[in-house]
Design a protein around this nucleic acid. Structure first.
Lengths: 263, 263
DNA sequence: ATGTCTTTGTGAACGCGTGCACAAAGATAG
DNA sequence: CTATCTTTGTGCACGCGTTCACAAAGACAT
């Protein structure tokens, strides 16, 4: 999921595996919810279910951060919130710019999840002069001519690209040249960036396509199951049929059409 | 990245690894671009760079689909587009509902990438009665009372949840009960679903937090490098200083502030 | 037909991530 | 203080995914 050829070889950043880093925000969210309910401690089991992972995995993840639990009791919620926040770098303020204020960019600007965790939208930038000055999420949109100045004035190191695909690479280059070293890309393009710049990609249509694949497979399996049933029904009297799963494949009255999908 | 406890144990769907499936849409996009430029064939090398992956990986991925290339020449673009589309199930029409027409839902409804590939937005659904009838992306928003009817009338099997976190689980349950078996979740919650239902999650703030982690680490490394340099400069004359990296930690005029991060 | 050159397809090795299962650690009760 | 019970932290094994490196396959020239 990460990016198009970014992320150093096999990033084990400082002993913390990439897969673990990707789960820390999940734990943090679950912990924050517990904290708001004033729950003092949680067991790995409870927290794991709340975060939607397996408890062994959670414990191993935490073991990379240090030993913050108490055996026989569990983890101190507040303390863990602090440790994870610090590890993720959320105890400091991250100014962020959003480039491309179309439907998606506006949605992002309004998204509460950003501001809630150390992220501050420093500016909204769009190439359309007609957008300039328009307020979006209580903040005036600025023209992309200002991009370099905004980034340097605010010390922005994280940029969000929500432009059309055609503009993304160019915007990316300007961001990087101006000093941005982390990019969250919503445009459906592979960005190429110099070493040292991180890119993460969020692609809506890709996610849907993956779902479609599984959906299709489910439909196919159903059909296969039905076919297997039919074949089984038809087979009575033929005792020496192969007992293993291959029976489902070489099924049917004639031919060897695989039940799953036409080749 | 996938979901909150969905996806069967280690889904090797029909010999096609999950990781490969996740890349197919990438290849498809690159191939479509080539197709539009009427390029007849591509080598694995060219296509790999276009898709932002390594060519060996690409070839192995394609090998799971069958042998669609010609040695010494490469892959036929059109043929490959067709094969991948078919494998992903994009040759058929997938009606989709979007639930929760806030900023994000509207952005999704307007997102061209959906319609372009077999996906058809069958309905926009929102719980707010004031939204009902309002046109978004040229389509009237319908009230959530209609949810079950819409799904069954249109044979919808894929649902997109773009509601606030609090409503997501309930919406999810209604979708599943009505027959939806694949869900794309944009709400920042762990959805729990029965077996046989696929959930994929897209979480904007999580991606940002992962970036923040790497950003912080970069800053830390820079600081460490500077500290090491400073230490080296300061060390001239003191020949017996420890030669290993620990020098960077016990640095500075006084105190022992670790250069990387306060423990 | 033969040889050369290009590019695919894949066997094999390696490394990361996951999950099991258990020993160590601490709480708690008697 | 001892015993018991809970829950963490982790060694270990296994499987998936990635990458290398090369043989097989075909195109193309002669």
């Amino acid at each position: 999921m990460a990016t198009g050829r970014t992320h150093r070889p096999a990033t084990r950043s400082r002993g913390i595996p990439e897969a673990t880093v990707a789960r820390l925000p999940l734990y943090l969210r679950a912990l924050t919810a517990l904290s708001e309910r004033s729950v003092p401690t949680v067991s790995s089991e409870e927290l794991a279910t709340a975060a939607g992972v397996n408890s062994a995995k959670l414990r191993k993840d935490f073991s990379y951060l240090g030993s913050y639990g108490t055996r026989g009791v569990g983890y101190d919620v507040e303390y863990l919130v602090y440790q994870i926040s610090r590890e993720l770098g959320l105890t400091q303020d991250w100014p962020v710019v959003i480039v491309g204020i179309g439907n998606l960019g506006a949605a992002l600007a309004n998204y509460g999840g950003f501001a809630s965790r150390g992220f501050r939208v420093a500016a909204l930038i769009d190439a359309d002069p007609a957008m300039a000055g328009k307020p979006v999420a209580g903040m005036p949109v600025q023209h992309s001519d200002e991009l370099e100045r905004i980034i340097s004035d605010n010390g922005v190191s994280i940029g969000v690209i929500a432009t059309p695909a055609g503009a993304a690479q160019q915007v990316c280059e300007r961001l990087v040249a101006a000093g941005v070293t982390s990019i969250l890309n919503f445009a459906p393009t592979v960005l190429s960036v110099p070493d040292g710049v991180d890119v993460r990609k969020v692609d809506l249509s890709i996610e849907l396509q993956i779902l479609a694949f599984h959906e299709q497979r489910k439909a196919g399996e159903e059909a296969a199951a039905e076919a297997a049933l039919a074949a089984a029904a038809e087979r009575e009297g033929i005792a020496e049929a192969a007992a293993d799963g291959t029976a489902a494949h070489r099924k049917g009255p004639d031919g060897d059409v695989p039940a799953v999908m036409p080749a």
